[in-house]
Nucleic acid binder design. Sequence first.
DNA 1: GCAACATATGAGCATCTGTTCATATGTTCA
DNA 2: TGAACATATGAACAGATGCTCATATGTTGC
Lengths: 121, 121
Amino acid sequence: MAIKENGKNAAVHVHEHTGNAHELKNLMPDEDKLYDLAELFKCFGDSTRIRILFALFENEMCVCDLADSLNMTQSAVSHQLKILKQMKLITNRREGKSIIYMLADSHVSSIIAQGIEHILE
Amino acid sequence: MAIKENGKNAAVHVHEHTGNAHELKNLMPDEDKLYDLAELFKCFGDSTRIRILFALFENEMCVCDLADSLNMTQSAVSHQLKILKQMKLITNRREGKSIIYMLADSHVSSIIAQGIEHILE
DNA sequence: GCAACATATGAGCATCTGTTCATATGTTCA
DNA sequence: TGAACATATGAACAGATGCTCATATGTTGC
């Protein structure tokens, strides 16, 4: 058994129980993509943001209405909206004094729908 | 304009810019479901766990091989596998001294595929 | 311009999260 | 049974995260 000396206790030995340890690297997306992907799902990984998305799934709404119906602070909503917008899950348009937010594309509902399917099993 | 006195600066006034603030409550899943959904997506919201899932997407693997190919500590992998298993994204079986992990169902790849579609735009 | 409304933003704080380290549990084989 | 291998787990710590509070920016109508 070969010995690797990288100082990590997890990799002091090299063996292949399933013989698959090295092939997957070709399949694995590069680090940047993996990070982006994780960042994307992180958006869905908070019940506040999920609630915002559910609200916008039904109707476009201004910040004020979102805060009101979700029983949240305007500031808290605004902070989360910024995150959702950075990830391009939502867009907005100004309408007078208000800014109306809406879902950006169909991926949002697709992803959530898949998630719901999973937890309903 | 009605005044609510709940002490939150976000909801001191009640108005309906879009007129949709109260209808969505019928559509919104209950708190438990929302929490479960967020917990599920939280699993995908970490690049380590995403990498584990990608690895298992290709081949079932033991903890040791995962740690080796992902260049992680055995302990770190094991901790994350526990989380993924709790959320029923993966299952395992014992095979001699090793424990082989694999994806639990097709939802995992569906969800990740949707995520990839989104970030590739 | 100014007052009222609507939203955005930065700092501070408490909580959550992922890793490491040490160690416990479980399996195989001699 | 004991030694080596394989995995799991708990405590502790550092970094990330979401909220609040105060305040800044931007819009409308007088």
